[in-house]
Simulated assay, not measured.
Amino acid sequence: MQVKLLFFASLKDIVGSRQLQLDLPHGATIEDVLTELEASYPRIRDYRPVVLTAINEEYVDQRTPIHEGDELAIFPPVSGGEVDSVPLIISRLGELYQITRDVIDAQNISRQLLRGEDGAVCVFEGVVRNNSKGKRTLHLVYEAYETMALKKLEEIGIFVRQVWDIDSIAMIHRLGHLDIGETSVAVIVTSAHRRAAFDACHYAIDKLKKVVPIWKKEFFEDGYDCRRCQGMRLKRLAWTYKDCPVYYLTLVSHDRKRLFANDLVHTAFKDFGKNAIHHGVTVGQYVLMPDHIHLFAAFSAEAISVSVWVKSLKNTLSKCLRSNNIASPHWQKGFFDHVLRSDEADVQKWEYVRHNPVRAGLVASADIWEFQGEVYALEFSR
């Protein structure tokens, strides 16, 4: 089968091309591709422990199988080189995401976003400085996996709007040659109050630096360095580590209203759970009861806090309920959480909660309760 390979930053320099076509046997995985590439380009072996991979613009594990027609991108940890393309932009009410080669005018964008009810605007601009690692910097060149970068900017922005009470957000990153003092990236957030604007802007730029596939090449007086920043190192989705605790969480409806055991909420919950992986949270098994939700989730070192993530989940499901003309309030304040210490504790807890529908008299067997499932498999390190 034919697979298209894309290379970025220092890996592009090693291969000598941004794009290759590769013939692979059916059933081949990304690990097989990397092994084959190492035979022709031995220096790739040095990147094997840290390389990131994406299929069709979604981060994936190296053991992921590849299919006919897939586009496989291979790159070092992200953050901050040069590609031939036109600016990419997503613009709608309250949101602006853009990858561009033009000068970024953050103040003009701020004026476009501001509304009469806004009481705060938080603007972050990342600019090119004249030194790095004790050496004098002449200029930078930024490179990106452009379509995926735009997609990741949008994912971050949507998440930020779910978690914080803001009015609008803009995230723009510039590519190509940048001189000292020029803006490389801007994040602008408007809101009624300053705290939400500060917190949302802070989270957005930190997340951008971790997951958006953009790299920078620094040109010094004595040469250049393709920067391999401390980007996000994706772990196996089916594995959690000692520094990645698994939480058992329970969320309860306001006044025990029967809100959650329906197809509408179930679909919204599953979609949210799948997207959570982009924010360092791996959702495992879950049960939706009429008036409460049980779920298991692992939080990586890069993840947001449990309370912020739960708030985002509640906001998402509340929007779903309101779209079905179910008025607020929907939730009991707070939530219940418990850190699991072992596979045994996980199994015991799951066996208990999965039988809740039976104990509540909703079904005769736990296996036939339709509002339960597993988003990703969670295991404990040994």
Rank of each mutant, 00 (worst) to 15 (best):
N356F: 06
H278F: 03
G16A: 05
E218L: 01
V265E: 00
R48Y: 04
L34T: 06
Q112M: 04
S85I: 09
V211I: 06
Y41R: 02
F75N: 03
S305C: 09
S307P: 12
H26E: 15
S305H: 02
V86N: 13
K274E: 13
I66R: 06
G27M: 10
V50Q: 15
I158Y: 02
H173L: 05
L313S: 07
R256T: 00
R236A: 14
Q162F: 11
S253W: 08
G27D: 13
H294S: 08
Y203I: 03
L138D: 06
I293G: 02
V308A: 15
S184A: 12
I30M: 11
N325K: 03
S85R: 15
W215F: 10
R45G: 00
S168A: 13
I166W: 02
K333T: 15
Q162A: 04
A345C: 09
L20H: 05
A377P: 05
I293A: 04
W369Q: 07
R18M: 11
V83L: 13
S17T: 15
E68W: 01
L72T: 05
A364R: 08
E71P: 02
L234C: 13
R92D: 14
V375H: 03
L208F: 14
L72G: 10
H177R: 13
Y59G: 08
V86S: 09
Q112D: 13
W215D: 03
S85L: 15
S79R: 02
K4G: 10
S381E: 14
E58S: 01
V187M: 01
Q62I: 11
K314H: 00
K274Q: 13
H173K: 01
H193C: 06
E36I: 08
A261N: 06
